[in-house]
Design a protein around this nucleic acid. Structure first.
Lengths: 233, 233
DNA sequence: CAGTGGTCTAGACCACTGA
DNA sequence: CAGTGGTCTAGACCACTGA
């Protein structure tokens, strides 16, 4: 497990910053100084510091120098796995049931749906994700047929919409909202819960370039599914 | 707004991948080929492709070449703001009430608490976050006095524990778990809810180096607070 | 206007690994 | 074992901007 020189330089300064030996606002040595200290070329120093700047630990300003960034936001990485994989990773059998599927015009009263549809229509899929035949998540999804024309030909019994989209349609931008709610009676029935039971709600929208692709709302019965986020290591 | 050559190469391939012109698994030209195509040195090509690899759009394998990645998980950035700031950002008055505060030995039956305490003790703080005097979140926090000795002197009426820690103790690693639950009656009373009401639960642990710093469990009444995650732009 | 980082060149040797 | 990417060198010119 040999570390390259640029990784060495990077991790040296990462350690100094995270340990507090270098405090926010403090200036780092200039590249010339580090070239001498590490006995390497300027390109190597530059790559190391550039990657720290990309990671947000330092800021580089021409003529002024390189500085430790001011305390960063509490931001963590949230991994939202494909549900089919998540279920199979837990050693359970996965199945997706289509409850409702139709292609329709966007509801004119919903600016959200009009935005999503663009010049095309909307494919709406309501479905249920099952783990070992037990309801795992209830999903309502809208897909822009203008942005994803191939979607109308997909057999969702083979590949649920989320899985298919993940594999076939790259997105460049996404937003998610996570909240708790009490299920309504219709939803409760599908999920085999008492009405009013707590559920985790996850709503996501995705874009490719400026174009809306899909939006989805998923309900997970509490105790069935936890989201996990992490930072570091 | 001039674009550097490496940015040009990077964005050319980013566009090809995002538009679907290059599909997952497809091979990209080798660096020699791209040097000729762009009339530049290999280092420039290498930087462009390395940054795409870091971003996860491509994978590079020695001898085999460079390939468009197969997308795996939706990984997004989750921002967990300091609650005092989050409340004030919504234009509401913020207040923190300490419900319980004590320094104690770790419970010997809890390996988790023993791990957290290390050679020291545990400061436990239970408290309530208020927005315009309405309960916003109920918090139970454990802090290692060995890792954060200064914590015992802090007046939490001035600065709630989360805010103080964010400002004074850098962490290098964190894990969070997010779930929905039905509140128990004790908790419901503090939050002015009916027992069994749905709440969003957020549990976090933080480390500095290998050392545990704090762990916290926060309950948010549903409708009171959504977590937001995003990716891109 | 001089110090600093941004970018680039034209080479080089090496590590890895799949044909 | 040969093709590919990983890393590095010792230069260079330039853009930006703060002293």
């Amino acid at each position: 497990m040999k570390q390259s020189l640029q990784e060495q330089i990077r991790s040296d300064f990462e350690d100094l910053i995270l340990s507090g030996a270098l405090v926010p606002g403090e200036r780092l040595p200039i590249e010339q100084e580090l070239m001498q200290r590490y006995g390497c070329s300027r390109m190597t120093v530059n790559k190391a510091l550039s990657s720290l700047a990309t990671a947000g630990l330092i800021e580089r300003r021409k003529r002024a120098g390189t500085f430790v960034s001011r305390p960063r936001v509490h931001s963590m990485t949230l991994e939202i796995p494909d549900l089919a994989h998540a279920v199979r990773d837990r050693g359970q059998r996965y199945r997706f049931i289509v409850l409702n599927r139709r292609i329709r015009k966007p509801s004119a009263s919903s600016t959200n749906e009009v935005d999503l549809a663009g010049n095309g229509k909307i494919l709406q899929i309501d479905g249920l994700h099952l783990a070992d035949e037990i309801p795992f998540a209830l999903e309502k999804r809208l897909i822009s047929t203008a942005a994803v024309p191939d979607i109308v030909k997909v057999d969702f019994a083979v590949s649920p919409p989320g899985t298919w989209l993940l594999r076939h349609v790259p997105w460049t931008q996404a937003e998610a909202r996570i909240y708790a709610l009490a299920v309504l009676s219709v939803e409760a029935q599908h999920l085999q819960l008492e009405p009013g039971s707590p559920c985790l709600g996850l709503e996501r929208q995705t874009w490719r370039g400026g174009e809306r692709l899909t939006e989805v709302r998923q309900l997970f019965p509490s105790e069935q599914y936890d989201l996990v986020a992490h930072f570091g290591s």
